[in-house]
């Protein structure tokens, strides 16, 4: 078995454009779930709103700036609507409301009815030319051996990692400000916050919407990287971002970034490992090559379970800061 090849492929995935998008989405989810304690199971809505919000005007010929702003604005509008409606609910109801809303969003954008605008099941392609025109890197592959990226991926990664650096700094300042303190206090006990004169609903709405802006940037980046396809934005995406977040550690500023990198490393490594080991006949007739995909997802599900149960603070976290533990 080609251990090095598998590992290098996994390393490549762990810093690639999709991992970057996961990190950005995770930053937003971390604010909502980790700091504000909002049970948001529909984070995919913000990501999809960002992707479609940018892709639709760009395809219609808008400039890059307008497109990106439209993506962010779309996420803000959608999260404002969802937040105003759902943040008054108890938190377990919020979970159900957001997950349902995520599925509604996906089904509507992929419908025939919406096809003239959203491209229906086919999605939207070939709208990111302006973005790649800005690419200063000349065509070719860059890197060492198998650990290399083409100029498009590299451009996406440069922009993406820059966004992450900015995002992490912005998030650090947010959560270490008095505003961030209030957000965390509300997570701990909303009644106490109310008794001390804090407008719980408003602060929650703020954190919900800011989290969605991060999701929107993730969506825009994903759209540039992979075009826009409605079925990519199923509710499952939310839970992979959760898994990544749990790996990195909830309620830690760098948690989602570390988590996304490790998640995509594991994801790709499991894939390579399963493909090779099945091809080499390790499991006899039990598994076929086509089972590698499902098996990898199963392992990630198992990681999600074991993380929550055994290491709620994440792979690298400190037990005292575990947010998921006994309430």
């Amino acid at each position: 078995m080609d251990w090095i090849g598998i590992t290098v492929a996994a390393l490549r995935a762990s810093v690639g454009p999709v991992a970057v998008a996961y990190a950005l989405a995770g930053l937003g989810l971390n604010l909502q779930f980790g700091y504000a304690g909002l049970w948001n199971y529909g984070h995919v809505v913000a990501v999809a709103a960002g992707a479609y919000g940018a892709a639709i005007p760009l395809e219609a010929g808008a400039t890059l700036m307008v497109g990106v702003l439209c993506g962010v604005a779309a996420a803000l509008v959608v999260s404002l609507f969802l937040g105003v409606a759902a943040l008054r609910l108890r938190l377990d109801y919020l979970a159900i409301a957001t997950i349902a809303f995520g599925e509604i969003f996906r089904q509507v954008v992929r419908s025939n009815w919406a096809e003239p605008v959203t491209g229906g099941v086919f999605g939207i392609q070939q709208f990111a030319r302006d973005f790649f025109d800005l690419n200063p890197i000349s065509e070719g592959r860059y890197g060492w051996g198998d650990f290399s990226f083409d100029h498009r991926s590299l451009w996406l990664m440069i922009v993406g990692w820059t966004l992450i650096v900015i995002g992490v700094l912005a998030m650090y300042m947010l959560v270490h400000s008095p505003w961030g303190r209030t957000v965390r206090a509300i997570r701990e006990d909303e009644q106490v916050a109310r008794s001390l004169g804090k407008n719980v609903f408003f602060v929650r709405l703020q954190s919900f919407m800011i989290g969605s802006v991060f999701g929107a940037f993730a969506g825009v980046l994903l759209a540039f990287a992979n075009n826009v396809n409605p079925d990519f934005y199923s509710l499952i995406l939310t839970f992979w971002v959760y898994t990544a977040l749990l790996i990195g550690g909830i309620g830690r500023v760098l948690g989602p970034v570390v988590g996304a990198v490790v998640f995509w490393f594991l994801f790709q490594w499991f894939d390579g490992f399963m493909q090779s080991s099945i091809a080499e006949g390790w499991y006899g007739n039990l598994l076929q090559t086509t089972d590698a995909g499902p098996f990898r997802f199963m392992l990630l599900g198992l990681i999600l379970v074991l993380l929550v149960v055994l290491r709620p603070q994440g792979f690298f976290g400190d037990k005292d800061e575990a947010l998921l533990d006994a309430s």
Partner: peptide, 15 residues
């Protein structure tokens, strides 16, 4: 274990 952690376990178990 908090209810939200339980529901995350159920999501993972579902997977």
């Amino acid at each position: 274990t908090s209810l939200i952690a339980l529901s995350l376990v159920s999501i993972g178990l579902g997977f």
